[in-house]
Amino acid sequence: MSSNVPVRLSVNGRVHELDVEPRLLLVHLLRDRLGLTGSHVGCDTTSCGACTVHVDGEAVKSCTVLAVQADGTKVTTIEGLAQGDQLHPLQEAFWEDHGLQCGYCTPGMIMAAADLLARNPDPTEEEIRHGLEGNLCRCTGYHNIVRAVSDAAKHPHAGRIPHPGPTPEGAAIGLELAREGLGA
């Protein structure tokens, strides 16, 4: 019935152009079309936060964003958080403090925590707990997650989220050049 819509977005610094069904959820674009399976789906009511990614630097639940809404944006997923072998301070802290068990909620939890630290670089325990209220974990009882976020906050770059690479708009020029055979 509905016709596909072209979408161009930058994910973890790489620009992708795809045709998608309008109803395609961003989380399924990331998982099924781009193979970025680190973002998980744990509910159908925008409750659990396991699908949390950043769109233009802010945490969103990618199960409640249409892929078409992400057209022209820069998306960062858990796969884009580390810089090469250098883990993000939050990843380090979750590992160090045993802030995860089954790991299913962890990518979303870390991405939500990154948003929290970007807004509030030096949060109290209470502020961390409230800052993570959109993410459910069944394994850890949150204790070590809170500890990890608190420890990560001691790192000067904990709130910094990498957005490497060109914007989709900038990249478009490169793509046009490539199509015309002028690219590398």
Partner: peptide, 26 residues
């Protein structure tokens, strides 16, 4: 009309809302 979608999309996912056209305001 679709703005942030955080009222509408949850209903659409549960198929409690079934619009035939979304006009995205982005």
């Amino acid at each position: 009309a679709l703005a942030g979608g955080h009222s509408l999309l949850p209903l659409m996912k549960m198929r409690l809302a079934v619009p035939t056209l979304l006009v995205d305001l982005r």
